[in-house]
């Protein structure tokens, strides 16, 4: 069955005819060719596919595209400023060496963006808890935790 889906992705309205079984992540990667959102597992554990739907972090591998009908989706490609300047959370990952191979990174950043909104000055423990749904195999999380703590403070305008 083919369905019509429309939503906003990174501020732009998009629409398509899709097979109903198309996952949101497949729509984003294959149809919109926004390949910064990654797929690292098939059991909703790794979080590499995390995007924001109406401002909230969700796993785009775990819903069909139609569940995002009419929603506002933000992917990693829409995070930096239009002139290419990194968002403070992205900058914090760079400054704190919060990424190595880069594959889990978009999911980490997207989840952190949402988390930081409600945690302007998070503790180490709060950050570790917030990463329950994001796996990284390279960094041992050490610098990811530091990045998110610094990025959240930067977003809140704190030094």
């Amino acid at each position: 069955m083919s369905v019509k889906v429309s939503m906003k992705v990174n501020g732009k309205p998009v629409a398509a005819d899709l097979e109903a079984r198309t996952l949101l992540v497949t729509f984003i990667r294959e149809h919109l060719r926004l390949t910064g959102t990654h797929v690292g597992c098939d059991t909703a554990q790794c979080g590499a596919c995390t995007v924001l739907m109406n401002g909230k972090a969700i796993k785009s591998c775990s819903i069909v595209a139609m569940q995002a009908e009419g929603a506002d989706i933000l992917t990693i490609e829409g995070v930096a400023k239009p002139d290419g300047t990194l968002h403070p959370m992205q900058a914090a990952f760079k400054e704190n060496h919060g990424l190595q191979c880069g594959f889990c990174t978009p999911g980490m950043v997207m989840n952190a963006l949402d988390f930081a909104k409600s945690h302007p000055d998070p503790t180490e423990e709060e950050v570790r808890d917030s990463l329950e749904g994001n796996l990284c195999r390279c960094t041992g999380y050490h610098n990811i935790v530091k990045s998110i703590m610094a990025g959240a403070r930067a977003m809140a305008g704190k030094p």
Partner: peptide, 9 residues
């Protein structure tokens, strides 16, 4: 329950 992303859905 689950993780942040799961709890949002």
């Amino acid at each position: 329950i689950g993780d942040r992303q799961v709890r949002h859905m």
